[in-house]
């Protein structure tokens, strides 16, 4: 444990994100989310766990309105996000950084362009078209690339990088937005166990440095326990657990994942006690 539990009990400055009674029903009639309510204070790293299909991805995408929520409210700082449209929505989105599962870098652009694309919500279309960003943005981008350890690679094309490096660029792009909130959708799902830990540690430490709250949607329970301050368990679109990682007992996990799946995960974890096995794979196999 990296002392996450201690961090969890620090007093919070203020609430950054507040979800109230958020629901999402897809056009097909599937209920993806039902009555989700929780709030995230500054600097808190929230691990969102649950079996596939529990609505983790939908929940994260509802926050920055890549998916339209059906009802409920999303409050980011003073702004109510659910009623925004057009320009106002884009200005709200730029306050929320997002990290993606398959990195979702624009592969044929350079690393630098990818990082600078985090400023798109701030600069005019003309400036972004000519790649003439304000010097402050460029300085910040260089700073972030140094921070994630890719300072030398800024003019490489994104598809020349390894998976771990790409995800670092993804993190730099999200931070380049100067976000008030970080969303991460399975940031480690396509990485090997060792790189996964490195990426999680990086996200955790930048969140500490910048007092940045994050919601990390993650398959891997052990990773979540290690790097999150707070765990929210989702099952069939509903919150079934919300508490510190230390409160994640066998019973709780069984409730989240269902008995069979969780036993399967545990067995696999025991056989590979040293290296953290990706629970995602184990779950998919079962």
């Amino acid at each position: 444990m990296v002392g996450a539990a201690d961090f969890y009990y620090q007093p919070w400055q203020h609430i950054v994100l507040e979800l109230k009674a958020l629901s999402k029903i897809y056009k097909t009639g599937d209920r993806a989310l039902t009555d989700i309510s929780f709030s995230v204070p500054a600097g808190q790293v929230v691990g969102l766990i649950g079996p596939s299909g529990a609505g983790k991805s939908t929940l994260i995408r509802c926050v920055n309105r890549l998916v339209e929520p059906t009802s409920g409210s999303i409050q980011l700082g003073p702004t109510e996000l659910t009623r925004l449209n057009g320009r106002a929505l884009r200005q709200a989105r730029r306050r929320i950084g997002m990290i993606f599962q398959e990195y979702a870098l624009v592969e044929r652009l350079t690393v630098m362009e990818n990082v600078l694309s985090g400023r798109l919500g701030y600069v005019t279309a003309w400036r972004s078209f000519l790649r003439r960003y304000p010097q402050a943005d460029i300085d910040q981008a260089f700073g972030l690339l140094d921070r994630v350890g890719l300072g030398e690679h800024c003019n490489k094309r994104a598809d020349e990088l390894s998976g771990g490096q790409r995800q670092r660029v993804g993190i730099a792009r999200a931070l380049e937005q100067n976000p008030e909130l970080l969303l991460a959708d399975e940031p480690t799902a396509s990485l090997d166990p060792k790189t996964s830990r490195q990426i999680m540690r990086l996200i955790q430490s930048v969140c500490r440095e910048m007092n940045l709250p994050a919601i990390i949607n993650i398959h891997d329970v052990v990773l979540a326990q290690n790097f999150a301050d707070r765990i929210i368990g989702l099952q069939a679109g509903q919150v079934v657990f919300d508490g510190p990682p230390s409160a994640l007992t066998h019973d709780v996990l069984t409730r989240i994942y269902g008995a069979e799946d969780w036993d399967q995960v545990q067995q696999n974890a025991e056989t590979q006690d040293d290296d953290v096995l990706s629970e995602a794979q184990a779950l998919e196999q079962s």
């Binding site: 630098m112 010097q135 300085d139 800024c154 100067n178 910048m210």
Partner: peptide, 13 residues
């Protein structure tokens, strides 16, 4: 969020 200016480096695509 303060912007950390490490160095004044120019960048051109």
């Amino acid at each position: 969020m303060s912007r950390e200016v490490t160095s004044l480096r120019a960048w051109k695509r």
